[in-house]
Simulated scan of single mutants.
Amino acid sequence: MNSEDVFINCPFSDDYDQHFKAIIFTVIRSGFIPRCAREDDDGGDVRFEKICRIIAESKYGIHDISKTELDEASGLPRFNMPFELGLFLGAKKYAPEQVAKKAIIFDRAAYRYQQFISDIAGQDIHAHEGDIRRLIIDIAAWLRRASRRKTVPGGQVIADEFDNFARDLPIMIEAKQLSLVDLTYADDVGLMTEWLAQKNQ
Rank of each mutant, 00 (worst) to 15 (best):
Y111R: 11
R47E: 01
S74I: 09
Q177H: 13
G44M: 10
K59F: 05
K101M: 13
Q201W: 06
N9H: 04
I136V: 15
K92Q: 15
D160L: 08
L196T: 09
F7H: 10
W195D: 01
R167M: 11
Q201E: 14
A91W: 07
E194L: 14
F79V: 08
Y94D: 12
D119F: 08
Q98Y: 06
D14S: 09
I105V: 15
G43C: 01
G86C: 09
T193R: 14
C10G: 00
E69V: 11
K93E: 12
A140R: 01
L191K: 01
D5G: 08
K199I: 02
R78T: 07
D168N: 10
I125Q: 01
P153Q: 05
V6F: 04
Y185V: 08
Q177W: 05
A103Q: 13
L196C: 08
D71W: 03
P82W: 00
F48L: 15
L183R: 07
R29V: 06
M81N: 10
R112C: 07
H63T: 05
Y60C: 07
I105Y: 07
A100W: 06
L85V: 01
D14W: 02
Q156M: 12
F106W: 06
A140E: 02
K102L: 11
Y16D: 11
M172G: 04
R133Q: 08
P77H: 06
P82H: 00
W142V: 04
L89M: 13
L70A: 14
K92D: 09
I104E: 02
G122N: 14
E97H: 09
R29Q: 13
R134K: 15
A100T: 13
Q198P: 02
I54R: 00
E49I: 06
I65E: 03
R112M: 11
V46H: 11
H19N: 13
G130H: 05
F162Y: 15
F83Y: 10
S179L: 00
I173D: 04
G155Y: 09
N164Q: 13
M1D: 11
R134H: 13
A103D: 14
S118C: 12
L180C: 03
I105T: 10
A127N: 00
F32Q: 02
C10V: 09
C52L: 15
R148F: 03
V189P: 05
R144T: 05
N200W: 00
R144I: 08
N2M: 12
V27L: 09
D71N: 15
G44E: 11
D71V: 05
A56M: 11
A91N: 10
E49C: 06
S74W: 06
L85I: 00
L183I: 09
N9M: 10
D182R: 03
F12P: 00
C10E: 03
N9P: 04
D14N: 09
M172K: 12
I54A: 00
R35N: 14
H63S: 07
G155K: 08
Q115I: 07
K67D: 14
G190N: 13
D45W: 11
D119H: 08
V46S: 11
I158G: 07
K101R: 15
Q98D: 09
D42C: 10
A22Y: 04
N164V: 06
A100L: 12
A175F: 00
F88C: 05
E161T: 01
E129R: 12
M1C: 12
L191A: 03
I120C: 01
H63C: 09
L178I: 02
E161A: 04
F20W: 04
L196D: 07
A141S: 12
